[in-house]
């Protein structure tokens, strides 16, 4: 039974990879035509559903990353992006900011100071206490059960290069301003859609 499930997962993964490759080609052609917003929309649409397959996740991240880095004018991006994309866009941060496992909130804070300077840490500072008040410390204990929920998986900041971090922080600041803390909470709570 377990073998059959594993087979389905692998089969499914192949299909997802093919779909992502197709998406990637479409994005490249949109970027060549000078339509970065269209490219980002395409990248955000049809994220692979619940999959634990690392290949799918990183393949999808490469595509989203490509589209994200092509955005030059963040204000223009938000004026032409529908609010329905906000929640998906926020999920990008679930991948970018991956912290060491088992980190406490204070450690997350210190980590963000080390990595990114004050812009990001100020954000953590204002956000983390409120999050804590909503009981999100409990997630840490739950994380063994539902690994997707572990919001301190802030991998990318340790692997991501400086331009990526800068671009992501710039977009994140505007996104939080536009979509509010509710958007972050939805992203944290979402166990079904992975980016």
């Amino acid at each position: 039974m377990a073998g059959a499930e594993g087979f389905v997962e692998a089969d499914n993964a192949e299909a997802i990879i093919i779909r992502i490759e197709h998406k990637s080609r479409k994005i490249e052609s949109l970027l060549k035509q000078g339509k970065p917003i269209e490219a980002l929309k395409t990248a955000l649409e049809g994220a692979p559903p619940k999959t634990q397959d690392e290949r799918c996740k990183s393949a999808n991240w490469i595509v989203v990353h490509r589209a994200l880095m092509a955005i030059k004018d963040v204000d223009f991006m938000f004026s032409s992006l529908d609010p329905e994309y906000y929640d998906i866009l926020m999920k990008v941060y679930g991948i970018i900011f991956v912290l060491p496992k088992g980190a406490s909130f204070l450690e997350i804070y210190q980590f963000s100071v080390l990595r990114n300077g004050k812009n990001f840490s100020d954000w953590t500072l204002s956000f983390v206490p409120r999050l804590k008040r909503c009981g999100y410390t409990a997630l840490k204990q739950q994380s063994r059960k539902s690994p997707v929920l572990s919001w301190y998986l802030y991998r990318g900041l340790s692997t991501g290069d400086r331009p990526t971090c800068d671009q992501c922080l710039r977009i994140h600041e505007k996104l939080t301003e536009k979509a509010g803390l509710g958007c972050i909470l939805r992203c944290l709570a979402d166990t079904v859609n992975t980016v």
């Binding site: 009981g135 509010g180 509710g182 958007c183 939805r186 944290l188 979402d190």
Partner: peptide
């Protein structure tokens, strides 16, 4: 829901009609 959403359900029965409303603040 604890994900900053509120849900409204009409026609509670075999075929309910649901609306999900997301808001920008804490849950």
């Amino acid at each position: 829901g604890h994900n900053s959403m509120i849900y409204f359900v009409d026609d509670v029965g075999p075929s309910p009609l649901a609306q999900n409303v997301a808001f920008r603040d804490l849950p």
